[in-house]
Amino acid sequence: MNITGILVPIVTPFDAQGNVDANKLTALVKAFIDKGVAGIVACGTTGEYYTFSPEERALVLTTIADAAKGSDNKNAITLIAGINSLSTDHSIVLAEQAKTLGYDGLMLSVTPYSLPEQDGIIAHFEKVADVSELPIIMYNFPARVGVSIEFDTIKHLAKHPNIIGVKESSGDFSHALRMLQANFNDFEVICGCDDQPVDFFFWGAKSWIAGAANVFPAEQVALFNATQQGDWQTAKKIMSEIYPVIHSMESGNYNQKAKVGCLKGTVDVGAVRVPLTPMSGSEKSEFLALLS
């Protein structure tokens, strides 16, 4: 499974009635592919997967897969399905669904709310990885789930043949650098912090799963390509240009801004769903001004 480059955890368009807009989702997948992204992550945080009914989840996964397979670049596009759940056993069910629908890999966080110890985290990932037919990218996002996957836990799980990487979203670059320096075999440390990609790429990361890619897909592809060519000045220039928007997103209302700013504010993908709420008019205007 190729995960080199920019992968977009795609937003989910909703229509005026709050329903999944499958036609707009199809167009969005094709637009991202045209911008040169390496993959699409379905049912990620920016996709608001936690609001889906089972029927909506199936619709979103199927729509994304059909759109990607129908593109001219289908052989280059990696499809990853988020399978986060409160229950490890339910994540296994979601993994089976993703395989049936033609996905290439999975992304899985620690179970939210339960706050497991590190041995419980190991048991969670190993239970899914032992039975899944698809490779797994772990997702370390302690701000969302309440606990972090510690270095020794990563070191242990990196040995599992079906666990191929970790999306590192803790914000602690020292933690990321320690993993990058460890040079685990057949295991990728993936940038999951939108304000740190140049740092990750400088130390050898090959992938960025970026919610901000909903806003800046072409720019982030160009930034990645520059780093792979050793053109750090260009990479820094691009990062400096998009940083004000990324800093704003990281400062609050991330999902709202990913939707309002979709393709630099040119595509209306609808509102966020409760429990998220729309930004105020002034905050929306201030954010859109950063895109101009």
Rank of each mutant, 00 (worst) to 15 (best):
L106W: 05
N75L: 04
I64G: 10
A58K: 14
S87V: 05
L108Q: 06
S109W: 05
D72W: 04
R57H: 02
L94E: 06
A42Y: 09
G102P: 09
K99Q: 15
I40L: 13
G102M: 07
T88N: 06
L86N: 14
H90N: 08
T51N: 15
E48I: 00
I40G: 09
G82D: 12
I80F: 09
L94V: 01
Y50S: 10
I83W: 03
A38H: 06
F52M: 14
H90Q: 11
T88R: 05
A81T: 02
V41W: 07
I80V: 15
A95R: 02
N75A: 07
S109I: 08
L106Y: 03
S53K: 12
S91P: 12
A81Y: 04
Y50Q: 10
V93W: 05
T63Y: 14
A58V: 06
N75T: 07
N84P: 06
E96H: 03
V41Q: 09
T88P: 10
I83C: 03
M107I: 14
S53I: 06
S87F: 11
G105V: 03
A81R: 04
R57L: 06
T51H: 13
L108M: 15
K99V: 00
I92T: 07
I77D: 03
N75I: 00
S71A: 13
G102N: 09
G82Q: 13
C43G: 00
K35Y: 11
G39F: 07
V37T: 00
V110P: 09
G36K: 07
G82H: 11
